[in-house]
Amino acid sequence: MTTASTGDPMVRAVDLHKRFGPVTALDGVSLDVAAGEVVAIIGASGSGKSTLLSCLNHLSPPDKGEVWVGGKRAGGDPAARLSRRAVEADLRRFRADIGMVFQHFNLFPHFSVLQNLIEAPMAVRGRSRAEATEHARALLAQVGLADKEKAFPAELSGGQQQRVAIARALAMKPAVMLFDEPTSALDPELVDEVLRVMRDLARQGMTMLVVTHEMSFAEDVADRLVFFDRGRIVESGPPREILRTPQHERTRSFLQRLLRRGA
């Protein structure tokens, strides 16, 4: 395993392919994301955006292609001919460095907010309870939920749950954060509190990949916009340019549809 030298991308995806039965979800996607860069990924549903995220942390491994995060290759060095077990263990370490936030939050409902945040740092990182708790409290303060550590997920609003989910991912001190439509399941009035937390995170220099339909967030926060269509990256560049003057016909029609819907 090599470590990243400065200038290497934080995330490197090379020629990812993924099929689900007859459906091609990813059709040769390559993407480099620099450290501290925020990339917004847009596109119609079913275009492969979410699949890209779950291929990046190998929740569903790509059929073909490679993923590197922080200079480490997912699944280890193929030349080492690792056993299945060793590859699985390597993937767990790999995933631990990648924070993931889901559309439906997926908090652990039987754990208190605090336990949600300290479970994995203790089990995976081997941190002491005291150490993990201290870090968790700092993160809860950061997402504006310092007073909720004893609550259970079902007692929180959707926006609060998603902020806890972001804090849970951050508790692992990840090198990169993946957001899979983090505000799509929220009532409109709860969207802003989550976007605010994400904005702060971007400002602090976190490397982020965000699948989103929030165009104003993409425009304001993202350094780069990537437009997905039918499992391919069709267009990629500064958000303002793509949103104002899309070069590709598919981008244009997608943005017009979005505009008509009033999103």
């Binding site: 929740l59 767990r92 995933r95 889901f102 997926n106 652990f108 994995a120 089990a123």
Partner: peptide
């Protein structure tokens, strides 16, 4: 299924996920 996925994304092992989550 999202519970398994969330635990897996955090790097938790399958046994830990089963017993604790």
């Amino acid at each position: 299924a999202g519970q398994w996925r969330a635990a897996e994304a955090l790097g938790l092992s399958p046994v830990h996920t089963l017993l604790r989550i």
